[in-house]
Each structure stands twice: as C-alpha cells, then as structure tokens.
C-alpha cells in the first residue's frame, strides 16, 4: 500500500478531495499533514493540494512555500520522492523552486471554473505512465492565477527535455489559443521538475476519479493509477 501525504495549509480546500481519491477511491494509506509539521514521514507520494493558502496574500503560494513542512517536501523531492502539486499546489511548488516558472493572473482576469481538455504530451512520467501520448483527458480547472509563465529559454528547455506533461487542447486535441483557459505560455497545463519526480498542474485530477461524478467521468484517475504503478502497487480502482 502506498503512503500518500496530503499537505494542509490554512486555506487549502482540495485537501479532502485528494485524500478521498487516495484513501477511498484507490484504497491507499493516505494521511493529512498539517503545514506546521516538520516531516512528511516516509511518504511515497506527497500531494500539495489546491486552495487559497494564506488567502493568496502577496502572491499565490508565496507564503505557504515557507511553511515548516515545505523544507521536508524539498528534501523528499531531492531524494527522488514523488510530489504532485495541483492548482495552488502547483503555485507553491513554483514559489519553492521545485518547478521552474510562475503562475500569473489569468489573461482574462477572470476566475475560470470549467472542464478543459488536456493533451498528454509525455506518457513516460511517474504520473502518466498509464496514458498514451496524445490522449485527451477531461479535467476541471478552477483558478484565477493559472497563467503559466517562464522566460523563453526556460520554455525551450522544458520542451527539449520533454517536461511539458499536459497542454490545454480543444475537443479534437488541437493546441489552440481558444483552448487555453488562462493564457499560459505555449498552452502549458502541467510541467515536470528537472528530475522527473515532481509534477505541477493547474487542472484538478483528484476531482474526477469516479465515473458517478459525470462530465469527463474519471479521467483524472489515470494520474493516480500511474503513480501507483510507478510505486509498484496493484491498483484497486
């Protein structure tokens, strides 16, 4: 059974969704880790969940990144442990320097809350090994600051190293400006850290792991199935 730590900051609001997916849908050993704790224990996977840590004061994720637990998340990541940052978690990981770039205010200046199509760009990551390149996943987004930005050299390097894991696409899988919900550079929806064990993404896979919820059904499940396969676990769902 994989040990999955779900961080909780003041203002996290997707922590229970992530816990529910890990614990009840996939039957893993999940636990919450309060941001004041100084260790994520022997977790195999750390999930940095969505929400509005510290009310998004200063910049999204800027304060949470200095929470005591983040030191140990950095240690865990440097030792090769898996880290998945979703939405505000993505912002926190960028602020912490575990991922390149930053998330700015959406180009529309509006909070965007809807389903989007994600095209899988790299299926050889710990989080996408059960998918195929070109697969389209329907996953919800809900954010005001999801506009991924980095300098051109960084973007080129991310592409050259195949670290763009997901891009926003239309229903036919085409990467178009119209399919980009927030103005992200090169339609980037999810990126991998330089050692390939840290993934940050704005869309919420933990919100769509059960077919009963409709919409895209359970397209987010492939991330959990992949992570568990990577960890050598048999998958319950």
């Amino acid at each position: 059974m994989a040990r999955i730590a779900v961080l909780v900051f003041p203002g996290s609001n997707c922590d229970h969704d992530a816990y529910h997916a890990a614990k009840h849908v996939f039957g893993q050993d999940a636990r919450f880790v309060w941001h004041k704790e100084e260790s994520v224990g022997d977790a195999d996977l750390v999930i940095v969940p969505g929400g509005f840590s510290y009310g998004d004061y200063l910049r999204s994720g800027a304060i949470a990144r200095f929470s005591p637990v983040m030191k140990d998340v950095v240690r865990h990541a440097k030792e090769g442990g898996l880290v998945l940052g979703v939405c505000n978690g993505f912002q926190v990981l960028c602020e912490a320097g575990l991922l390149p770039g930053a998330l700015m205010r959406n180009a529309s200046l509006r909070f965007v809350c809807r389903d989007v199509h994600l095209r899988v760009e790299n299926a050889e990551t710990p989080f996408t090994n059960q998918a195929q390149v070109g697969d389209l996943l329907t996953v919800p987004v809900a954010h005001g600051d999801g506009n991924y930005t980095a300098d051109e050299a960084t973007l080129d390097r991310l592409e050259a190293e195949n670290r763009v894991v997901f891009r926003y696409a239309d229903a036919d899988g085409q990467i178009t400006p119209e399919a980009n919900p927030n103005g992200s550079a090169r339609n980037i929806a999810g990126v991998l850290g330089e050692n390939g064990n840290v993934l940050g993404m704005m869309p919420h896979p933990e919100r769509c792991v059960e077919a009963i919820l409709g919409h895209g059904g359970a397209d987010g499940a492939v991330l959990f199935r992949s992570a568990l396969a990577h960890l050598g676990e048999s998958v319950a769902a």
Partner: peptide
Amino acid sequence: TLLANAVM
C-alpha cells in the same frame, strides 16, 4: 526572499 518573485 519573499516580497518579489524574480521569475516575473
């Protein structure tokens, strides 16, 4: 360290 993010 905190107030500005050098990326942007």
